[in-house]
């Protein structure tokens, strides 16, 4: 346990180091991209627990993210909305004021999303594959429609003037925590049970592994961190609206996983980085070649090429580790692994 806490502290220290560099030496726009990368990393790692490790096809990650974003912003933001009965604008002071209110607000967002994960996890007991994908897609859309109609959180316009608490430290501190805890999860009896459910649900059950409970656990865990990512997103962008959390966002996170290798946390990190940085980099290229849509086309091409030549993703199900690096370097006598 001490060692685990040490590793977590190391992660936070690393996040703080990155924070110092980014806040002192990186101009605002690239700094924003760096921060967006951190949020994407959390989204991808957490979705990987559901889709990669447990083998459930969820397309609802943006829904969890939205819940986390709205709930945490609800606690930290001065809410202003028009009250038709009183015929005037109402202003509510934030429940958690100041920077110290931010971690509890993030946590509240994560917990709210985790509760939603519990509810969404239940249909997974009956639905498989494409059907589950459609059900979770529906969940995401329902969240977004409900938010659009909820006046207290700004309806379709969303929430504005959210305090900008999410800096590089908070974002990468959360990302490091998510990566480390998920690594611990993977290398535990619960991680093996999740993979067993993915590999062969019937055999897992006959071995006494409660597949239903494992799937719900995966949804709750993944949703929690998606909620945290949402909270960070809101406090980074300063405004959120239901449009930020449409199904395209969920699809984007799935593509990150497919790119990095479904089932691998480190693959998820790489996929998240590529899919966050590449569109921004291509934005400039697009301007230069004066061809709008060039970015999207290249993006699609990348996926097609990926599916043709490396359908298991960059990393497959392996984790990036020193051992793997050693194996990838020109090998002397080690037999290659079967794909």
């Amino acid at each position: 346990m001490l060692r685990a806490l040490g590793i977590l502290c190391l992660g936070l220290a690393g996040a703080f180091g990155l924070h110092l560099v980014v806040s002192n030496a990186v101009p605002p726009y690239p700094a924003l991209i760096v921060n967006m990368c951190g949020i994407s990393i959390i989204l991808a790692i957490s979705l990987n627990v559901i889709n990669g490790l447990t083998g459930q096809f969820s397309l609802g990650h943006a829904g969890f993210m939205a819940i986390g974003a709205y709930v945490s912003a609800y606690f930290t933001t001065t809410l202003r909305y028009f009250d038709p009965d009183a015929a005037r604008y109402i202003s509510e002071a934030p429940l958690f004021d100041g920077l110290w209110g931010f971690p509890p607000a993030l946590l509240a967002g994560g917990i709210a999303a985790a509760l939603a994960g519990l509810i969404v996890g239940i249909p997974t007991l009956r639905l498989k594959g494409d059907y589950l994908a459609i059900a979770t897609l529906g969940f995401g859309e329902i969240v977004s429609i409900l938010l659009s109609n909820f006046r207290a959180v700004g309806g379709t316009k969303g929430l504005t003037s959210i305090p900008g608490y999410a800096d590089t430290f908070w974002i990468y501190g959360s990302a490091a925590t998510c990566l480390i805890l998920t690594g611990f999860l993977q290398r535990s009896t619960f991680g093996r049970a999740l993979i067993a459910v993915r590999e062969n649900e019937l055999a897992a059950e006959v071995m006494g592994i409660n597949a239903a409970r494992m799937k719900i656990t995966a949804f709750v865990y993944g949703a929690f961190f998606a909620g945290v990512a949402g909270g960070l997103f809101g406090h980074l962008m300063l405004t959120i609206s239901p449009a930020n959390f449409g199904y395209m966002k969920s699809v984007e996170v799935v593509v990150m996983l497919v790119l990095g290798g479904l089932g691998s946390s480190t693959g998820a990190v790489v996929g998240a980085l590529i899919l966050t940085v590449l569109p921004e980099a291509l934005r400039d290229v697009e301007r230069q070649v004066e061809l709008s849509g060039f970015r999207m086309a290249l993006y699609a091409l990348l996926l097609v090429v990926m599916m043709l030549f490396r359908p298991q993703g960059i990393f497959g199900q392996r984790e990036l580790s020193l051992k793997l690096l050693r194996r990838l370097l020109p090998s002397r006598d080690k037999p290659g692994r079967q794909p």
Binding site: F184, L185, S188, T189, G191, R192, M207
Partner: peptide
């Protein structure tokens, strides 16, 4: 090892924090 999972004396929380029980 998966066969022995059903008799596990540890909770998810133990594994996430790598407690002695994990």
């Amino acid at each position: 090892m998966t066969g022995a999972h059903q008799h596990a004396h540890c909770r998810l929380f133990d594994s996430l924090l790598r407690t002695g029980r994990h």
